[in-house]
Design a binder for these strands. Structure first.
Lengths: 224, 224
DNA sequence: GTCTATATCTAGATAGAC
DNA sequence: GTCTATCTAGATATAGAC
């Protein structure tokens, strides 16, 4: 399991081209990249067990043996793909400037950043896949937790702790409420098709969340 | 006695079979249950595509043809199983007495009820499976949303709306924050193995959540 | 490294005896 | 309805030419 300590990885345009129909310029990209591109498309659509190496090869427009010359086996291909996507694409990076903002603005910006994923079918499929294979590939789930979630949690926890005017007694738990509400919203509305069954505007969640966390200030100040 | 509202939009042959006690062919019912039991074990462990009908038959200790005599095909077996589990086992039913409680006690009880699922491997596997197959079987995901989630949301929303002393401006959104935080906690800690990577006591989440929602009362009262 | 061709096995689904 | 036996397609992985 490889973790990039300071994440400034190569800008691998793994996800820029989803449709590689009849583009005869396949020789320009490296074969490995080409394979990963095809594998991503198939794995995201059909899951691990539902994906065949034949199909990966076909979509990637290479022969099957070429796939096996770059990756040991199906497991190795899947692991390499998920590790790359986790680290290079779906790791949310918060700029340092974010944390100079006042609380309500910061929280709104973070919420917006996350809620954009609702309109990103590729992320929804990736999220679904990580969860789907979290029993067969527990290490990939942990990698996702560590790279995508944990860093953001730690940063916001520090922010909460430093901004004493918020009077947050348990910063880490409050972070869980904030990020957790939004993650569950994405899961229910985007992944589980809740948008069609119990729709609700995402702004209402954001407003409520910001109100709950920020307006604690008034409560305790008046109490003291 | 637990409360069970009538709103049931989906037709399910499995429910009607179970409720009809006067089935003359007890042998037939027994086999069917036996198959579903085996199917549950295998599907929960290996997912839909990873499950073979051979293995289901073996675990259920019947021949494969017997499986096909009770269910049209693999899809039909899976659908019947998930529908049954969703409705009969994992639907959280809130007793009416719950909603006579004061807010902090009610929220704590609800949180406890949900967080028990962290220690229920079968629920964690079921939760994982619903999400995993939400692309291939969107109707099952919607059924889950409607039966497991929506009813609880609506009940707590009514409670929030009726208890005006809580001064909750958007009850439904507040419900999303409450249930969403807990659901995301179960997902991260239980399903995605976050317990091993970023452990945190569930009581801290509950305390923070209750504090955020209930102490809003003081805030707005003082604000005037 | 990359291809075509193939070995070996297992998948879902069905036939036919009883 | 339930079993054993089987069909056919597709799966992972490898062989061997170039």
């Amino acid at each position: 399991m490889t973790l990039f300590p300071s994440a400034e990885p190569v800008a691998l345009d793994l996800l820029s081209e989803v449709t590689s129909e009849a583009t005869p310029r396949t020789e320009q990209r490296s074969k490995r990249e080409q394979i990963l591109q095809g594998a991503m498309q198939v794995f995201l659509e059909r899951g691990y067990a539902g994906t065949s190496m034949d199909r990966v090869a076909a979509v990637a427009q290479v022969s099957k043996q070429t796939v096996y010359s770059h990756f040991k086996d199906k497991k190795g291909l899947f692991t390499a793909l998920i590790e790359q996507m986790t680290i290079q694409r779906f790791q949310i990076r918060f700029g340092t400037d974010f944390f100079g903002e006042p609380p309500d603005l910061l929280l709104r910006q973070l919420a917006e950043l996350m809620l954009e994923k609702l309109d990103d079918p590729q992320f929804l499929a990736f999220f679904r896949l990580i969860i789907a294979e979290s029993a067969r590939f527990p290490e990939l789930a942990k990698l996702y937790i560590q790279t995508v979630i944990q860093f953001g949690h730690s940063r916001l926890g520090q922010y909460f702790a430093q901004h004493s005017e918020l009077q947050i007694s348990d910063p880490d738990a409050t972070v869980r409420v904030f990020f957790g509400s939004i993650a569950a919203f994405i899961l229910a509305q985007g992944v589980l098709h809740g948008q069609e069954v119990m729709p609700i505007a995402k702004e209402r969640l954001v407003n409520t969340l910001v109100d709950l966390i920020v307006s604690q200030t008034d409560s305790r100040a008046h109490k003291g």
